[in-house]
């Protein structure tokens, strides 16, 4: 009963049917079930997976798994804004008579660019898996997907809960060993976490028009202010984007140095630069866009971030960037 309530509330907030909603152990797990389940459901007609080059690593890891199981995986290039063009996806699908599953995110988690999911679905005619982790709750879900995944902690819900959406009538099969032969409900759905997640989701959806408007204006302010710093690249679509996220790169600046210095001044930011990653590999998202990968700073606004916070960051950045460049002998 409680689980049904959580399912119905989640479905209503996301604008889907309640029998299309399942709860998983994480967003990552929902992504894996979504991608691999669509592939399993269509396996008799083909074992091809096409993913945009800017998908979250959870999708890319599902691709590696699929390849290990004998399937094929191809990566589709994106433009300078990080967007997958529907015709690029359609051309790739038509390379072979074998059916392909197309994996494309609703919005990019690093640069904020929204993807034309509905247009991609229409242009390709393929079953589309949509990783909606970066946008679900904040924005209405786009149309066109056959399966989708979301993550509760991204909308302020509890960690350890993912949401898998499978459209009614979609060919989807559990790709992993399961106790029950029935597809749904999935084994072991966590009732308390599902309830907490649904409550958080309802709250976010209820206030998102106001929050999005405010955050989007603050991101515009940040983008314009940062662009005035010399040799700076503001990355991602300036308009068709997530409301709360902005990414930029400063030429000649060490990403770790700037993150550390901003942290010292009370600003918690992220970075896609190689020197901030344990692998020493730069962000595959920035690389696929042809964007500068070093000196990268990613700012996620909280719902209570103020214009004053943004202005303090804009006041600090020119000095921080200039000093790091000076230390580098420039």
């Amino acid at each position: 009963m409680l689980l049904d309530n959580a399912r119905e509330a989640t479905a209503e907030a996301l604008g889907v049917r309640s029998d299309e909603v399942s709860f998983t152990a994480s967003g990552t797990h929902a992504v894996h079930l979504g991608v691999l389940g669509l592939l399993a459901g269509h396996a008799r007609r083909g074992r091809r997976l096409l993913t945009s080059a800017v998908e979250h690593s959870a999708v890319l890891h599902a691709g590696v798994w699929h390849h290990g199981q004998g399937g094929s995986v191809d990566t589709l290039p994106v433009d300078v804004l990080g967007r997958l063009a529907p015709q690029t996806a359609a051309r790739a699908v038509s390379w072979s008579d074998e059916l392909a599953v197309v994996a494309v995110q609703s919005a990019n988690h690093e640069v904020g660019t929204l993807q034309p999911v509905a247009d991609i679905a229409e242009a390709t005619g393929a079953p589309v898996f949509m990783d909606a982790c970066a946008s679900a709750g904040r924005l209405p879900l786009p149309e066109g997907w056959a399966a989708a995944a979301a993550s509760a902690h991204k909308w302020g819900g509890p960690p350890g809960l993912g949401v898998l959406l499978v459209r009614k009538g979609t060919r989807w099969r559990n790709p992993f060993p399961a106790d029950s032969m029935d597809q749904f409900p999935l084994d072991g759905e966590n009732v308390p976490l599902a309830l907490a997640s649904a409550a958080a989701l309802q709250a976010v959806v209820a206030e998102r028009d106001e929050v999005n408007r405010r955050q989007s204006a603050l991101v515009d302010r940040l983008r314009a202010g940062v662009a005035r710093i010399p040799d700076t690249e503001v990355v991602g679509d300036p308009v068709d984007r997530l409301p709360h996220l902005v990414t930029f790169s400063f030429l000649y600046v060490d990403g770790e140095a700037i993150v550390t210095e901003l942290d010292r001044r009370g600003f918690a930011v992220a970075s896609g630069s190689a020197c901030t990653a344990s692998t020493l590999e730069p962000s595959h998202v920035l690389a696929a866009m042809g964007a500068l990968t070093h000196g990268n700073v990613r700012v996620s606004l909280a719902r209570d971030t103020t214009e004053d916070d943004v202005d303090r960051l804009l006041a600090a950045l020119p000095e921080v960037v200039a000093r790091i460049r000076e230390d580098a002998g420039l």
């Binding site: 690249e233 630069s273 190689a274 020493l280 042809g290």
Partner: peptide
């Protein structure tokens, strides 16, 4: 040898 150079040198040329 730095893997980021493969992306950042073309990006530098563009900028």
């Amino acid at each position: 040898e730095d893997p980021a150079a493969a992306h950042d040198i073309p990006a530098w040329c563009r900028m």
